[in-house]
Amino acid sequence: MARVLVVDDSRFSRNMTARILREAGHEVIEAADGECGLEAVREHEPDCVVLDLLMPILDGTGFLNRLRGAGSVLPVVVATADIQTSTRLLCEELGVSGFVNKPVRAEELCPCIERAVRGSSVGELR
Rank of each mutant, 00 (worst) to 15 (best):
Gly98Ala: 02
Leu67His: 07
Glu35Asn: 13
Cys48Pro: 11
Val76Phe: 03
Gly62Pro: 03
Leu51Tyr: 01
Arg118Pro: 00
Val41Thr: 11
Glu114Val: 09
Ala2Gly: 04
Glu107Ser: 13
Ala32Arg: 14
Pro46Glu: 14
Cys36Tyr: 03
Val28Pro: 14
Asn65Ile: 03
Leu125Asp: 13
Pro111Gly: 12
Arg126Thr: 10
Pro56Tyr: 06
Val50Arg: 02
Leu67Ser: 12
Val73Ile: 12
Ser97Lys: 05
Asn15Gln: 15
Glu114Arg: 14
Asp59Glu: 05
Leu90His: 06
Thr85Lys: 10
Gly119Arg: 06
Glu93His: 08
Pro56Ile: 04
Val7Thr: 02
Ile29Met: 12
Ile113Ser: 09
Lys102Ile: 02
Arg66Cys: 01
Glu35Ile: 11
Gly95Cys: 08
Ala18Glu: 10
Cys110Thr: 15
Arg68Gly: 11
Ala32Cys: 11
Val96Cys: 03
Ala116Val: 07
Leu58Ser: 04
Arg115Asp: 15
Ile83Phe: 04
Ala81Phe: 02
Pro111Lys: 08
Gln84Gly: 11
Arg42Gly: 15
Leu125His: 14
Cys112Met: 15
Glu39Phe: 08
Thr61Trp: 07
Ala79Val: 03
Ser120Asp: 15
Gly119Cys: 12
Cys36Leu: 14
Gly71Arg: 12
Ser120Ala: 13
Gly123Trp: 06
Phe99Thr: 01
Phe63Gly: 00
Pro75Glu: 08
Asp82Lys: 08
